[in-house]
Design a protein around this nucleic acid. Sequence first.
DNA 1: ACATTAAGTGATT
DNA 2: AATCACTTAATGT
Length: 213
Amino acid sequence: MLHTHQIRLKSLLKEKGFEESLIEEILTCGRLKKAKKGAYLLSSGMKVAYLPFILSGRLRAYRGDDEGHEITLFYTGRGETCSFAINSIINQTPSGIGSIVEQSAEIWMIPGTKVDAWIVKYPNFRKFIFQSTNDKVDDLLSTFDSISFMKMGDRLYKYLLDLKHASGSSTITKSHQQIAIELNTSRVVISRLMKHLSATRQIRQQRNRVELL
DNA sequence: ACATTAAGTGATT
DNA sequence: AATCACTTAATGT
């Protein structure tokens, strides 16, 4: 007896090219977790017990300090897993990053204890894991570059573009304050830059809403 | 109508 | 690019 989310999960796993028997294993030993927008899934220093496979929604990974500063690192969406979770699981080390639900998500939680064996047993799982790691390291480097070399205005624009790609929508519903937190700058700075983007017709904005043009 | 939260702005560092 | 101090605009109760 399969639930609708299990059917969707199954077809997504097939799409990913996973072996039939692996799909069965994933289905039997995982469990569904529904997480609402704004929920914290993981914070820095926590042990990771489950490998999250995202069925729907989107997560935002960030690095933070103890004074409430943070910086957005990358997003994780449908059909993806967070490669930092993989590292924490395999190396048995605590997570160095935090993860928050950006768009209400359904996540298939796979016990971390299975990961080692599956990497050995299933070539396609191994590929998936390495591919995920590679993807997220690329994202991370791109974020690193922007912090190191780009001016705030360009960083903001890149941030908006990244969000557009991650969400598949050119409308972003966030306040200037929230964006400022994610980029680790001040609200005033974001407001000024937004005004400029608006004046040069690169965006259109309303309260709590930015549309990329 | 009033309070609260979001966004805009000039001046200063 | 950040901070302060303040204004104006939008929204909730």
